[in-house]
Design a protein around this nucleic acid. Structure first.
Length: 271
DNA sequence: GAAGACCTGCTA
DNA sequence: TAGCAGGTCTTC
């Protein structure tokens, strides 16, 4: 679930709740694989007694800078989220100074926590963050023209652009009427520019709406307050199979591209 | 690239 | 009950 806008929402809410400046007093980890190769005890020992300096986000990673000089890196993967409320799907519990508790909820147990001395160990493997100033139209153009790859998997490749996931890839491609299997080098200059603008636009709107979630239930994205994002109402392609395209009225179809469900308009988005 | 693995809950 | 899900990793 969480892509850039959802991860950004969680990072912001951690800051808004005021976790920065607090000391980590206790930490319980109930799902050991989450912190491999460290053990839960080793991870907990390294964090307890340190203070949280800052919380930030790059791509789909949350970066928590600690007073020890180390960085607590969190990837939510498919279903992770921090929450201020306890739930039966919590995999970890953090006690902060001032009596604040944080719960790490993760139904599918795919979330990962890492402890690193230098965040570049992780972030260095990523392309520029899709909403940062380092992701420019020129950069995207280079990536598209220098490769012969289907456009959708290229957009999902975190080593090229960090933060785009399945929902926002489908949204950006629908917005620009580009078929997800088009070869990246076949895009016209106009299409490349439009795609750049669409990527930035759908992600910004996603952030403004505090993320996207679909359906109900525990596998869905929830923010720290347990609320689903309101971006769902604005989604034009993802999850709208069979519903009319908002441009031409043709029912949207769903295909599989690199093993990912992909929704598109068969009329507007031609190969 | 493709396919399977990692996991659980929800929907059809 | 089978198949599907917002993400990555590993192994062909």
């Amino acid at each position: 679930m969480p892509e850039l806008p959802e991860v950004e929402t969680i990072a912001r809410q951690l800051r808004e709740r005021g976790v920065e400046g607090r000391e980590i007093l206790a930490l319980r980890i109930d799902w050991p694989r989450m912190v491999e190769p460290l053990t839960p005890a080793a991870f907990s020992n390294a964090l307890c007694g340190t203070k949280i300096n800052t919380v930030s986000r790059t791509g789909k990673w949350i970066q928590i800078q600690l007073s020890s000089g180390q960085h607590w890196m969190v990837h939510l993967r498919m279903a992770g989220s921090f929450s201020k409320r306890r739930s039966k799907f919590d995999r970890a519990e953090v006690l902060l100074s001032g009596g604040m508790k944080l719960y790490f909820r993760d139904t599918r147990k795919f979330g990962r926590w890492k402890l690193v001395d230098d965040p570049q160990e992780i972030l260095g493997q990523l392309g520029p963050d899709a909403l940062s100033k380092h992701f420019t139209g020129t950069y995207l153009e280079q990536q598209l023209t220098h490769r012969k790859r289907a456009i959708k998997p290229l957009l999902l490749d975190q080593s090229l652009i960090a933060g785009i996931g399945n929902i926002y890839a489908d949204e950006a491609l629908w917005a620009t009427s580009i078929h997800p299997q088009r070869c990246s080098s076949s895009l016209t200059p106009e299409e490349r520019k439009a795609l750049y603008r669409a990527i930035r636009h759908v992600l910004r709107i996603g952030v403004q709406n505090r993320g996207t979630s679909l359906g109900k239930g525990q596998t869905n994205y929830r923010d720290m307050n347990g609320e689903s994002g309101s971006h769902r109402k604005r989604v034009k392609a993802y999850g709208r199979k069979g519903l009319p395209c908002e441009r031409c009225g043709t029912p949207l179809i769903k295909i599989v591209v690199v093993q990912r469900g992909t929704t598109l308009c068969p009329t507007c988005q031609v190969r």
